[in-house]
Structure formats: C-alpha cells, structure tokens
Amino acid sequence: MRGVLLRLCCALALPAVLLALWWAASDGSTNVYWPPLRTILGAFPDVWTGERLRGDVVPSVLRLAAGYALASAVGVALGTVVGSSRRVRAVCEPVLEFWRAVPPPVLVPVIMLFAGIGDTMKIVVIAAGCVWPILLNTVEGVRAVDPVLAETARSYGITGAARLKDVVLRSASPQIFAGLRQALSIGIILMVISEMFAASNGLGFTIVQFQRSFALPEMWTGILVLGLLGFVLSVLFQLVERRVLGWYHGLRAATRRSR
C-alpha cells in the first residue's frame, strides 16, 4: 500500500507543480488568447456537463477504441507474417517503408472520398496512423525470437498455433507492447484531427467550434479534457501491460537483483 501511494505521489507531483506555475504565470493575464487558469477552471463545470460528455467525449473515445483495435489486429497479424519470413520481409519492406513515411493527416481528404464523412472515415484515419508502430515493432519482435528457444520448441513438437502463441508472440510481446504504447498517443492526436474535418460531435469538433466563436476559456477547457483523457488512457494501458507482461517484468527484476 505504501508503495502504491508513493508511486501515486510521484505521478502527481510534476502535474501539480506545472499547474501551480501556470496559475502563477497567468494570474494577471489580460491577453484574450491566454486567459488566467482560474478563469479556465471556472468555466470547466459549465462547459463539460453530463450531456456534453455523452455527446462529445464518449463518441471520441469509441472512435479511438475502434481505430486502435483495428490497427492492433492488423499490425500484430501482418507484423507476425512479415517478421516470420525473410522472403516476405524482402518483398514487403519497400512498400511498408513508403506508406509509413506518408503522414496520416495528409490521407484524410483521400479517405473522405472513399469512406465518406461519418465515423468510418475517422476510424480509418486513426487506424492508418496507429498501425505502423505496432506493425514495425511486431516485425522486430518476431525477428528477435531466440533461435535456441525456437529450436527447443520444435524439438518438443510444439508447432502450429501453439508455437505461434506460446513461443513467437510471447517472446515478441514486450516489443509489441512498446508499439502499442506509441500507437496510443498517435491515436489520440489523429482522433482530434479527424474530428476537425466534417464532424458534428467529438472533442476535436468542440474545440474548433469554441475557437471559431472566440470562446477561448472554453477552448482551453477542451484541451485540458484531452490531457486528462490521455493521462487516464496511459494509466489503464500501464495496468494492462503490467498484467500481461508480469513474467517479463519479474524476469528483469530478478536479473537486476542477481547482478
């Protein structure tokens, strides 16, 4: 319990200091574009009511979840295939490197032509950006599977789906989760960008509407909501990661103790 409280204090210390500095630096501000923090916090409960949370935050989170899940499934599946075969990797790498270099926001107008302006477009945009870190980390993780471990599994007759699940994906899982962590932050960015194009709800749409109507304290509250959403998702991701990769963190801790 003491360790949990200590980690919580460490996690909240820097945000508390930054908020205190923001409060002090903006307290006497008369700049319309940079209102005092007390003004922003005062507008927060009036703006983010239960109705607005249901109408804007929930749709954004659902789109993010759908796009992230799609990217995770495609990235892990394709990355496993590419990483497992040298020939497939030689054929696919030039194409993958080409598409990886294309910024996903540039594809928004193109995706709109094929997917329309509804939720499908936003989900595809999020998935198109999130898939690359997952895919590339999966490829490298699969390539780095210990050959001795793979040969031992083959000697014991562990083949097919059992080998894929218990040897390949398990060995590559630390690197896969590294890609998933990178993709989460990219997904939040693309969620906002996709909602700035032909949207009728969502966090990105709401922030742009506040900016266009010069409701700048309200616009800043939307930015704070995005930050809080990113923090909550990061904490949830860490909890899942520690549970799934408990064996890996335990192995690393044992290795450090033995040195």
Results as ranks from 00 to 15, higher is better:
D56Y: 10
R54A: 14
T39M: 11
A71P: 04
W48L: 01
L70A: 14
P59A: 04
L64E: 12
A65H: 05
S60V: 04
I40K: 01
V88K: 01
V58Q: 06
G67C: 01
G42D: 15
A65R: 04
S85Y: 14
R54L: 15
L64K: 03
V61D: 07
L53S: 03
A71Q: 11
V61W: 12
A43G: 05
S72I: 08
A43E: 13
R63Q: 13
G55H: 08
T39C: 03
L64Q: 07
S85A: 05
R87Q: 10
G50H: 09
G50Y: 07
V61P: 01
G79Q: 07
R86G: 04
V57C: 05
R87V: 09
R54D: 11
V58F: 05
G79I: 08
V61F: 15
E51L: 06
D56N: 12
G67H: 04
R86P: 02
V91Q: 07
R89M: 13
G55K: 05
A73L: 14
G79P: 03
T80G: 07
S60T: 10
G50S: 10
D46G: 13
V58E: 05
R89T: 01
V88F: 14
G83V: 10
R89G: 04
G50R: 10
A90I: 00
R86E: 14
V88Y: 11
V58P: 02
R63M: 05
A71S: 13
L53N: 06
G79R: 03
T49D: 11
G42Y: 13
A65N: 02
G79M: 11
L62I: 10
T39G: 00
E51Y: 08
V57N: 06
F44M: 14
R52F: 14
S60F: 10
R63W: 15
L64N: 06
T49I: 14
S84P: 06
R52G: 02
P45Y: 09
I40F: 09
R89H: 15
G79S: 07
S84T: 12
G42W: 14
A90K: 08
S85H: 06
T80K: 00
G42S: 12
A90F: 11
R89C: 12
A90D: 15
D56I: 02
A66G: 03
G67I: 06
V82H: 03
V81Y: 05
G67P: 03
V76T: 13
G79Y: 10
A73C: 06
E51S: 12
P59D: 12
A66R: 03
